[in-house]
Design a protein around this nucleic acid. Sequence first.
DNA 1: CTATAAGTAGACAGGTCTGTATCGTTTGTC
DNA 2: GACAAACGATACAGACCTGTCTACTTATAG
Lengths: 186, 186
Amino acid sequence: MRRALKKDHLIEVAAKLFNRYGYHAAGVDRVIAEAGIAKTTLYRHFKSKDDLIVAVLRRVDAQYRDNMREAVDKSASEPWQKILATFDVLETWFAGATFFGCPFMSAASEYGDRSNPVFQEVVMHKRLMVAYFEELARGAELENPHRAAETIHLLHEGATAVAQVIGEASAAAKAKTIAAKVLKET
Amino acid sequence: MRRALKKDHLIEVAAKLFNRYGYHAAGVDRVIAEAGIAKTTLYRHFKSKDDLIVAVLRRVDAQYRDNMREAVDKSASEPWQKILATFDVLETWFAGATFFGCPFMSAASEYGDRSNPVFQEVVMHKRLMVAYFEELARGAELENPHRAAETIHLLHEGATAVAQVIGEASAAAKAKTIAAKVLKET
DNA sequence: CTATAAGTAGACAGGTCTGTATCGTTTGTC
DNA sequence: GACAAACGATACAGACCTGTCTACTTATAG
């Protein structure tokens, strides 16, 4: 493997393990074993495990939002339909075998101190999601785009939590139905 | 302190620490130090830390639902208003200094294996919450009580997640508004 | 080709984790 | 008041944690 790609691969593997087992439960030894690199290499790229976690969250944030944008744009062209399409993306995520709840909410739970860089990365991700929803709401010419965005965000979070615990991807469809009802006439 | 109360106090302290720092981050040494008991005593009552966590979740579940019922019954007598009142209870919780997200969602994140007793306790709690919401929905004579209950549950989860990350208790009021809109005409 | 940077392997330090063993003390009960 | 159960204090085992250090190897750029 090319050297420039080693760091990427490391982040990818770490993301997978943190997502599945949690940030405390997945140790550095396990990450390097799974990634097939030496511990020295990890600590050359990241000065600490927390540093790695922040990098992982940044990566997951980028991937998540890129994937969301792409899937939404592909499945709908009409602005209002795009908003509803975000819930379909959610459902696909829930139905996948690698869904263990929102990695950002997990991080916020395990690093509950708001001053922690990990927590701040979570806040950043959620704000970017709200910003994206607001962009969609503006496109659909909803009356109060920011308020609509917060509503969509709240429904996304609710669906994710329900899907994680109850284990049914249909929570996304429920949230979609609620969104359709509540956003139309505001 | 009376001996029969020691166990209760231990569970109480453990609940507080797990809620604030997370289940992995808060070790048994810290729990016993804060509770003022010996490690021997803890392991006489619980055969493992996981066992303690399950006991904590059971306790928190009972307290949470008792508190919800009591507060709802006190603030509203009309069935439909009781449903809306659940969101006020949520807001009070969010505004408190001891709010660090839902302890059950945190547990589900840290013990993601569905076969784990900890996870199953989380599932039980959420099912009981849905059952309570369904009871309220039935009282309010909503058309589809179970569906309404799931909607209320989803909104509760969404509000909790938003409040945890964004840090604004008003997420509960937002969820309340959505509930009022979407549940009335179904 | 050669210098330099990055990689591997693995021991190791120092701390923390869960859980157990020992033993003296306190407390509730009969 | 005596006895048994529970508790406190503490040392300890053994595993695992993050992070560092050394020594050797490989790959890349000039």
